[in-house]
Design a protein around this nucleic acid. Structure first.
Lengths: 110, 110
DNA sequence: TCATTCTATCGTAATATTGCAATGATACAA
DNA sequence: TTGTATCATTGCAATATTACGATAGAATGA
């Protein structure tokens, strides 16, 4: 049905899934890496840097913005994008808690 | 078109996206958490534990297995699943490298 | 052998995602 | 005002994902 049954999972499980979805596309990974690489905010060159059409980039930026991982400030005719440090760290905390589950007990019987 | 243009991205970017997709669904998050929680391998009770139909769980398990994040050993009529420690740590390394990109330079102009 | 149990696969329906052309909207410059 | 540059939105087509009923396969026990 293509419809994820979010209601049967915990808030935490859904939140992990939502954040993970942000990185589940190489274009969004590339956008974020570029935002990190630049020592200033990135305006328009994302379209040139990544090889996708402008509406496609705009759509990916919108998703990242809705998740709160990036911020966008209007600067004249262009828009300045950068990482939202606070939310980025929050996301990192949530995902790291999941990644660092104790592995010692599991995995020793297969 | 629903077709990700993997060819225009780096190997690393695609790999991050592929791993992230594993966690981009709460059912798979729940499966992995359950595998971690158990101090022994998990066989059939994932269907009961999580509220999805058996074919659906089987499908999610297949995806996780294809990524190498879990292993499955046949034990009589049932199958024993557990985390693949080696690949799990490898995945953690790749994603952490991405998460821990230097944030100090970016994000100070918005 | 036959029924039971457990899991995988197939087929299908519905929703989600991706990508882009066309079009708007806004700010600035001439 | 008229263009130009930049980015957002809309609308659409194509592919991907999610979920499950039905069914098949494999091992076990009666």
């Amino acid at each position: 049905m293509g419809l994820t049954k979010t209601e049967i999972f915990s808030e935490q499980q859904n939140q992990i899934a939502v954040f993970a979805k942000a990185f589940a596309h190489p274009a969004r990974v590339a956008i974020l890496q570029h935002l990190f690489k630049m020592d200033t905010c990135v305006c328009g060159d994302l379209v040139i840097e990544i090889g996708l059409a402008q509406p496609t980039i705009s759509q990916h930026l919108k998703e990242l913005k809705q998740l709160g991982l990036i911020k966008g400030n209007i600067e004249g005719t262009s828009v300045c994008y950068c990482i939202d440090q606070e939310n980025w760290n929050k996301m990192k905390g949530i995902l790291n808690e999941f990644f660092n589950l104790d592995i010692s007990a599991a995995g020793n019987c297969c």
